[in-house]
Nucleic acid binder design. Sequence first.
DNA 1: CCTTGACTTAAAGTGAACTTTAACAAATAA
DNA 2: TTATTTGTTAAAGTTCACTTTAAGTCAAGG
Lengths: 146, 146
Amino acid sequence: MSYTISEAAEKTGLPPSTIRYYDKEGLLPNIKRKNGIRVFEDMDLRLMGLLTCLKNTGMPIKRIRDYVELTSKGDDTLQERYEIIKAQRQFVLDQIEQLQYYLEELDFKDWYYNKALAAGSESAINLDDYEKETGKKAPDDPNREN
Amino acid sequence: MSYTISEAAEKTGLPPSTIRYYDKEGLLPNIKRKNGIRVFEDMDLRLMGLLTCLKNTGMPIKRIRDYVELTSKGDDTLQERYEIIKAQRQFVLDQIEQLQYYLEELDFKDWYYNKALAAGSESAINLDDYEKETGKKAPDDPNREN
DNA sequence: CCTTGACTTAAAGTGAACTTTAACAAATAA
DNA sequence: TTATTTGTTAAAGTTCACTTTAAGTCAAGG
């Protein structure tokens, strides 16, 4: 199947302006043209899925372009591409860990506001209760007197 | 304990310029001054920890300021603050889920390059092997002929 | 007394990732 | 035939979150 830019936009969730921007930045090599108009194939849409993955996990556009360029150079660049993917995979693992840490901070805040709302006031909260009730240590937090 | 801006910077990991910027943006209300010079207390450092948590989980500066402002208005704003924290907590859960999805895409790529490097070429890869070897379905990916 | 170093401000500059604008081309519907 | 729709480009504009710069204040040390 082939698609126009607006169809590709719908399929990928990226606005046409962004697709054109990615194309200009070299993230979409070998997009076909018919009378000057971009023609997207399924393979292009799958590439855009990968771009979205890399972008949404924090890879800068320039590095994505490097990866894409390496890909079109063939088997000689397998090792280099592998290093990029491995690094990004580790980066995602680190991000998840970081988010899980922040989640604990927000879990505490959630508990805190539940308590405060039940009591009608923040001043009524006994922070020792957090550990008693959840088994987790209260994180550092403003609103504390330590 | 009290700290200068450079000590606060060291403790929080934020550069002094960023701390001044946050102060200007209203994220650090009630910072004391001594002869015009900022004096940070432990409570301020803990607040900065919370700011970092909110910022690093994707909350825009303006929304963080709203939250901070609500906090200094006292118990009347408990419900509103709770909503903000609850929404952010859910946002973090969604982010983790999203990252875990992207991780699977990268896991596939990792497998793919391992295979390709072992064989010396991408063309030698049989994508059906991914499910056979890992029990996971190969995600959509460029480099595939489907 | 003077220099050094750490602080202050307002304002301008930066980099990333788009988005918008303006002007134009080609195909299609009325 | 004309109007509308959908595409094209280069270039300028936007937003966010800082960072840098320039000019100044102030306390401590030599």
